[in-house]
């Protein structure tokens, strides 16, 4: 077996220009403009001159904006479609159910923003004021920002490479008039790539309070979550815990429970034990969750009798407890 290109040992979230060569050391690296890979790169002379090594000018502005945010929580998962956005929305609604808790939700999934649909605000627009972009308010104490609000039509695909996505994420943190917030929930796209590195890099100084990892019971999803845990450890994000979604399905007709996605390798419980991560809880699959998300209503409010609601509320209590709120 050959080890062609291993993952970078400790990800050094760095700004790599769009036209950089494959092994670009990063414009902020000491090797910028001097490494072998730099030969022939259009940016070599700029990198070698040293001007790129100054910290990102956006960082102080992000720090100022984020100073008003008490808790910053990332919702992560290696795999797509496991329920990150749904969970983010439920968590947001649960926090915002207390009238004096200010909650913000930031959707950094640039190529597939789901948050506007799930929260039922897909047709809203972002307005700009002197103090920055005004987020969209679902209710008085719940502000939302997503690239979905900025597209002329929901049909439009955003075909952006990394650096452009990073630019927008930085703007979401620096230019959005969040105001004072108790919680800022960041919904991420699947994987461990540009968006994730950027958000970690931009929030480094302000500090991230922790990450909630979402998975489903199959091994294919667990494999990706193992990678995500590895990522969190590499970049030093505290893992608040693991949520197992879509675990078990209760038939609305016979009330019999069956496993759609079988935990062939022990499910999230085993993974949590193996990796030394807390399992926050398991949420059963309820078809009404998907329906609530499609109609943009709060599942917790619509179906307080569902076992999934109980599971969600328990998980949310646990998260608050871990954070010490």
């Amino acid at each position: 077996m050959i080890a062609t290109q291993m993952a970078v040992p400790a990800p050094d979230p760095k700004s790599i220009p769009a036209n950089a060569p494959e092994h670009c050391p990063g414009t902020e690296s000491d090797l910028a403009g001097k490494s072998e890979a730099c030969a022939g790169c259009d940016n070599q002379s700029i990198c070698a001159s040293g001007v790129t090594k100054v910290p990102d000018p956006a960082l102080p502005f992000i720090k100022a904006r984020m100073a008003q945010v008490k808790r910053k929580i990332l919702i992560l998962s290696g795999k797509g479609g496991v329920g990150k956005s749904t969970f983010t929305a439920q968590l947001g609604w649960a926090f915002a159910s207390e009238e004096d808790t200010q909650t913000g939700i930031m959707d950094v999934d640039i190529c597939g923003p789901s948050i506007p649909t799930i929260l039922g605000i897909a047709s809203e627009q972002v307005h700009s004021s002197t103090s920055g972009w005004s987020p969209v308010y679902v209710q008085d104490n719940m502000a939302v920002m997503s690239v979905g609000f900025m597209l002329p039509s929901s049909r439009d695909a955003i075909m952006w490479r990394g650096p452009k996505k990073n630019g927008l994420i930085s703007q979401f943190l620096k230019d959005v008039d969040w105001g004072p917030l108790d919680y800022l929930l960041v919904d991420t796209p699947p994987g461990t790539s540009d968006e994730h590195l950027s958000i970690v890099q931009y929030l480094k100084e302000s500090g991230i309070d922790g990450a909630v990892l979402i998975t489903t019971p199959q091994e294919v999803a667990l494999q990706d979550v193992r990678r995500e845990i590895d990522f969190c450890r590499k970049v030093g994000i505290r893992i608040l815990g693991l949520v197992e979604n879509m675990s078990g399905f209760v038939c609305p007709n016979c009330k019999g429970e069956s496993q759609i996605f079988k935990p062939t390798t022990g499910g999230a419980k085993k993974l949590a034990e193996d990796m030394g991560v807390e399992l926050l809880g398991s949420v059963p699959l309820d078809p009404r969750i998907g329906k609530s998300a499609d109609y943009g209503v709060s599942f917790l409010d619509e179906h307080p009798d569902s076992p999934a609601t109980t599971a969600y509320l328990d998980i949310i209590d646990k998260i608050k407890e871990i954070l010490g709120d």
Binding site: I2, A3, T4, Q5, M6, A7, V8, P11, I16, A18, A20, P21, E22, H23, C24, G78, R161, G162, P163, T192, S193, D194, H196, L197, Q223, R226, R227, E228, I229, D230, F231, K234, V235
Partner: peptide, 15 residues
């Protein structure tokens, strides 16, 4: 190509 299947591949676009 991964040595360990739990390894994360944390790569930006050019890579």
């Amino acid at each position: 190509l991964l040595k360990n299947k739990g390894d994360s591949v944390v790569w930006r676009g050019p890579k």
